[in-house]
Computed example of a mutant assay.
Amino acid sequence: MFYIVEFYETQEVEVVPAAWVADDVCQWPTYYKPDELAKAIKNEEQPGDSWEEYRVRILYKAASYKAARLKLPEAETHTDLQTAEEDDDMPRRKRKRNVIGGVDIKDTVWRIMKHLFTNSLAKQLNWRGVNGKTAFHSLQLKDVITGTVRNNHLTATATDQEVEAYIKRWLHLAGDRDGGRREREEKRRASQHTRPQEDEQ
C-alpha cells in the first residue's frame, strides 16, 4: 500500500509507503541520496531509528507504487484527491501547490516549469534572449523558482547554478515536446523524399 501525502510544513506532495505513515506523521530518511530514496520508496523499506518525522495529510491511497505515481500530478493540483471530482469546476490555478515536490533538483525544477509555462510559451523563451526570444535570466520569476526549489527539503541545498542549468535545459527542449521532435523528423523525411524528384527534373 502506498499513500500520496502532503507535508504540512512545506506543502510538498510525495508518494510514500503506507508503512512510513502513522497518526498523520511520516517518517522520512532525510540523509538518503535521491536514488537511494527512490529505491527505498519503491521497495517499501522499513523506517529506521534515525529517520526524521514530519506531520502530513494523506491525500490518496493506492495499492501499488505505479498507481500512486500516476495520481501524483493530479495530487499537485488538488487539495484532496478523494473529493477532486466534486470540485472540478473550481479554477485550476486556485488549487495549485505553493511548493511542488520532487525527488531531486532536476525533477523539482522541471515540475515547477511545467506548471508555470505552457509549451507554446516556453518556445518563446531562452536563457539569454537570443534569436528574438524573451530572456528568461532577466525575469524575477527566476528567483521565485530558485526559492521554491529550496523550500523542498530534498533540494534545500540547491545552488543557483544547478537550478539555472535545469531551467536552461527545460527551455531548450521545448521544441521537442508536444510532438515537436516528430514533426521535425517528418519534415526532414519529406524534404529528403522530394529532393530526388527535383534532381530528376
Rank of each mutant, 00 (worst) to 15 (best):
T79I: 14
L121Y: 14
T157H: 13
K133N: 07
H172E: 04
K114H: 13
G101E: 06
A75K: 06
E186C: 09
I167F: 00
R92D: 08
I145E: 03
R97L: 03
E183M: 07
T79M: 14
K96M: 12
L72K: 08
F117E: 08
Y166E: 14
G132A: 08
N119S: 09
K187T: 09
W127T: 04
R177K: 10
A158W: 00
I145M: 01
N119M: 10
A122N: 04
A165I: 10
K106V: 05
R92H: 10
A158M: 04
E86F: 15
A190E: 15
N98W: 06
D88T: 15
L141D: 09
M90P: 02
H193T: 13
Q82M: 15
R189G: 07
M113W: 05
T148M: 03
L81P: 01
K142W: 00
V144A: 07
P73N: 11
L72C: 13
E185T: 06
T148R: 02
W110G: 04
D178Y: 06
R184K: 11
K106D: 06
I167W: 00
D89L: 15
I167N: 00
Q140D: 07
N131E: 15
K123L: 05
E86S: 14
Q161Y: 05
Y166N: 05
D104N: 07
G147T: 10
L125K: 00
G179K: 13
N119I: 08
P73G: 11
Q140V: 00
T148I: 02
R111K: 12
N151W: 04
F117M: 05
T155L: 03
G129P: 04
T159M: 10
N98K: 11
G180C: 10
L171I: 02
R182W: 12
E164T: 13
I112T: 06
K114I: 08
H193Y: 09
T146I: 08
Y166F: 13
